[in-house]
Design a protein around this nucleic acid. Structure first.
Lengths: 206, 206
DNA sequence: ATTTAATGTATACAACTGTACGCTGTAAAG
DNA sequence: CTTTACAGCGTACAGTTGTATACATTAAAT
């Protein structure tokens, strides 16, 4: 049986996406990739690219999307692990650091395009981050019943700090990785504790 | 009197540096600039570039350096302002946000090259950040006499969060800027308060 | 069975890049 | 005054880029 047209197209599309991910590394950002480079890596003719994406931008947004999905899947597993453990913070941070270790390309993409030159990219990455922030804020609010706004501000700080620890992890030796994780955990505990203390003050005043 | 040779060279060098800064914007990162583009903006011949810098990388490192100097100068002014005020955190964050507003190009550069493709750039930006972190850690340690390590972790979290607020500020409407500043201030207070609480626990245990 | 439509290719081109080479003018050194 | 050294320019070249156009193949629609 020969492949259907749609199937074959999907295969080629995947080749392009995978090729692009493969090309990302410590010293290669998405914006530094050329269309031809991607098609070369994918093993197709330059013009064939246009049969699947209008732009390098469109491909990039697809990558961000896929990266986001992968990240969310992993963090869902983290939540399962949390149920067996005492420390939410520790499990979450460690899971995230594992993700970065296992698929650094995805994190490279998100990290760099978060402050990149394309507004569409920035928005896309921001959306992925918001996903985590909202979820974490819900968790916090549900657990400690803070005001919504406070929970969100707290969640945001936490996500940013974990993200930052990930960024540092990319450049550091594997030996220092553990230390980096511990640092992030301490930082999140500062925030959790501080938010706790300050929200109690608030309630007394009211 | 005609200009001395060294003087004229310095002038041209400045033209290159200024041109590069001028070209940086929301949708133009340093790594996306070409050598020819910079020389065009500077009003010199492409080859003249080499009389002053070996590389675009060398120019870029110079820009990071200059940006760092400008930033440090401003924060020194902030410290003067602090003496007249009660809130260290508020003054520092507001001063930083003003800096970003006044010279966004410098911040763009630091923000993007912090996670860019050049190791030298990343190290250079990291050095600038360390400068703030160490200084802030000293301040914290002196004021609350924390353990050195704890103060550093706390300072790092603070600097990261302020830097992040700056990143968000670049993309937001001027009206939301105030709100962003307040958010960062709250986040830093969480950290300050949390670190306080946790270090007291530590002392009791010892 | 014939036509249609779409995936993929090869060729081509103009734009842009970094930089090598050689020249000019002139400040500085002798 | 003569010589040297060097900032700056013009030309040139090979390499890369995005993409327009035309064409081949073949699954799907008629």
């Amino acid at each position: 049986m020969t492949k259907s047209r749609a199937q074959q197209k999907e295969i080629t599309r995947r080749q392009i996406i995978d090729a692009a991910f493969r090309l990302l590394s410590l010293d290669r950002s998405y914006s530094s990739l050329s269309l031809r480079e991607v098609t070369r890596e994918a093993g197709i003719a330059p013009n064939s690219f246009y049969r699947h994406f209008e732009d390098m931008e469109e491909l990039g947004l697809t990558l961000v999307d896929e990266g986001g999905v992968a990240l969310r899947q992993l963090m869902r597993k983290a939540r399962q692990r949390i149920e067996d453990s005492s420390s939410v913070i520790r499990i979450s941070v460690e899971t995230f650091m594992e993700f970065i270790h296992n698929s650094p390309q995805v994190f490279h993409l998100l990290l760099r395009e978060r402050s990149g030159t394309s507004l569409a990219f920035r928005k896309a990455v921001s959306r992925e981050l918001q996903y985590f922030i909202v979820e974490l804020a819900d968790y916090i609010q549900h657990r400690q019943n803070y005001p919504t706004e406070d929970a969100r501000i707290q969640a945001e700080a936490m996500v940013i700090l974990v993200f930052n620890a990930g960024a540092e992890a990319l450049d550091c030796k594997p030996a220092e990785l553990k230390q980096l994780t511990e640092k992030a955990i301490i930082q999140l505990r500062y925030i959790a504790r501080g938010a706790d203390a300050l929200s109690q003050v608030k309630r007394k005043v009211h």
